[in-house]
Design a protein around this nucleic acid. Structure first.
Lengths: 239, 239, 239, 239
DNA sequence: TATGAATGAGATTTCATTCAT
DNA sequence: AATGAATGAAATCTCATTCAT
């Protein structure tokens, strides 16, 4: 059995989703692909916006969609609630951005990890990589992925419009992982990949509910998950 | 490999948790000393109460702890919102009962299934049984388990006081399942059972998020989950 | 200075005010002046009604007009709240009866005391008698007078329709006491009887706020009040 | 007999009780160390708060503790009901402040009047002064004293916590007035000062129930009350 | 004669949102 | 760029009242 692959630690730059209607409408992800990544100091406004977005993610994952109060978000960011309206036109838009960004960052992080996979990696090797990346993003101090995973099912459809696009793109990655494994006969015959895939995702997503750094190291969780999944879905002849 | 065990379909009678402070306070359990448990018709009051409790579970799992409005619950039960206060002293108490009952019913259902296991069942056979029972309870039309699984993490501690007791009892069952498998050397060496257990639970609980009868039959989901888990955690020998 | 006159202890039969619209409409004070007072046993219904009326008076004086809840009244009377509607058509009517009866009983009690005054009693002697009667009625275990005094000022006019009639009748008694004292030159010259009268009534009514049997005997309060009033209003040449 | 003393008309500045938990929490007293008390214009916030407090006092004295609705208070102050929550965390806290401030202002007003008494004033002269001050404060356009007097007896104990402190302080002043009169032999022998004091207070407090400027001038009420009280309690010698 | 079950109206309270500054 | 002050809409909860029994 091959050693679990680990994701490259380089952080994926988030294509943060812009707020369109309000004041600063500054895109943080701006100027992509410019030769020299001009690491300009973020303005005070940009920093407040980012603080608020993170505060919203944190509060959202702690209290849920309906429970997230703007006062809490603002307090966590060290401002007053009306300040939020300088950056987003409504609570809904703020949440929309949190979940869209959260899903996007997760997808990008896993995508980047897979893109960095060695040329000879098998389908199951790539599955290991995806598991590693997904779990680590979830465990990262940023609460974005957390917020998404805990709340999508309770979000009104209107709020998910952009998020579902990201989510479908992310789901496609996982479906690909499984169809590849089927194609290369690495998946155990008789196992329905349409069902195996969401079941496996459950292993990962549910970790958001119980894992904490005090309980165990993230490395060990990743290794255990990889081991269970690989044995759980692999064809019997070990690869 | 033995065929996946299926849970006996007889529903476990739930030790419904009593409402203590309000009006009817009728205990369903008691059955006043009669030798043969007289299956008396439930009174109109009891039926309304049960309808409200179920409505609360449904609404709770759809909208979350903070999003569940009493008007919705009442409407679903076909009464006006204040009627709820005839049976529970507060929204919080209603929710408390939903999650406590939900956890208890899940535990009892799985317990009963394990109790009905054939004498010769191995530790992994019993794991299959537990998976089957947990998933079927989750998929049952009753939204109780659903409501609990989706919401516990967002519940204020005060509301969980009684639920956590049930939850710990349920967790003990699963821990037992894994320690038994370790003891009988059925668990793959090197696999940390402390981590394997919550990861496996994730497979099951997350099904609440994506499974629907239209998507696939519950039988197939159960079989697939059992297959993944068994291969995922079993020592290499048996297969 | 003459010894304080005391009210004859015979209790004044209360012309309890009838409830007109509802069920039993039994008048308790019925058959007045009939030669032999047929002391028929009160029916169960009559007893419940009287218990409720007293409970209403008690609750009313403790919690005030807006604060008196029918549940409290019913509980104090040992029945359920809807039982009240068997005797009164509405909460308002119940309160109306409490304050009307309360005022009437007070007036009748003082009237009876004055009627029993010895032939030679001076105006100030009669004032002493009125003070004695008013204070003792207030201190009596029945909370009726209490309830009236504490609440009339906050009652909606509609509820006072019948009570004001009684109240005016009672006020007339006191005005008479003062005009008599003026006529007999017993009142200190220069003292405005129009103002002295309500000021004196204040001495008595306010006792409802502070007096309790633990604090002092009712006899001593009566004596002190009589002493203050007599010296306070009497013409200098002692009578 | 000395002419009734009148209270100096200068209004005693009320040590307004601060709102601790909510928004503005501005203390009116403080006056930040400036040598001369800079009579700065009150801010808009302070004015709204004071308007609400006065409106609450008015409504409270008209409708009683349980009958005072926030909508009424707000309407009287020219704002919407939720605005109240910007200044107080609950209806109870608002009422608590009204009665505490009301009691404090009454005490301060009477205290100031007594402090301004001429050096040679006898105990009975000082009693006259207190009567004058108490009645005038009650008759003042500010409804605070009114609100307290009419409602204390119906207030839940929790609300009175701070008010009772003020009340005890005020009661001490009156007790002192009477013990002084006893000490200087100005009180009629045989009169129990423990009972005379609350009876006299009743004369004053009950005026809140019946006095109105249309009925008579406040000056005449004060004079009549002083006359009754002085004759009512004075030792026979002086007159 | 009274209660159990429920409702409609209305109260307090919360909270996203606005707006002048 | 952000806040203080306030509002409108809606949620929970209370309570008088109804009605079948």
């Amino acid at each position: 059995m091959p050693a679990p692959k680990s994701v490259p630690s380089k952080t994926v730059p988030s294509k943060t989703v812009p707020a369109k209607e309000t004041g600063p409408a500054k895109e943080t992800g701006a100027a992509k692909e410019t030769g020299a990544p001009k690491k300009t100091e973020p303005t005070k406004s940009e920093r407040t916006r980012e603080r608020l977005l993170l505060a919203a993610a944190t509060t959202l994952s702690r209290l849920g969609y309906a429970g997230m109060r703007l006062v809490d978000v603002a307090e966590e960011a060290g401002v007053q609630a009306p300040a939020i309206y300088y950056y987003w036109p409504s609570r809904e838009q703020l949440i929309e951005e949190v979940v869209t960004v959260g899903t996007a960052r997760l997808r990008e992080y896993v995508e980047a990890a897979l893109a960095a996979a060695p040329p000879g990696a098998t389908a199951l090797d790539r599955l290991d990589i995806a598991i590693d990346a997904h779990l680590r993003q979830l465990a990262s101090e940023s609460a974005f992925a957390h917020a998404v995973i805990r709340n999508v099912s309770q979000l009104p459809p209107a709020i998910r419009s952009r998020q579902v696009v990201e989510e479908r793109a992310y789901a496609a990655i996982w479906r690909r992982l499984f169809t590849d494994a089927v194609a290369s006969a690495e998946l155990r015959p008789g196992l329905n990949p349409e069902l195996a895939q969401p079941l496996i995702i459950g292993i990962l997503n549910w970790a958001a509910e119980w894992w904490s750094p005090e309980r165990s190291s993230i490395d060990e969780v990743v290794a255990t998950a990889q081991s269970i999944v690989r044995h759980g879905v692999a064809a019997d002849g070990p690869h």
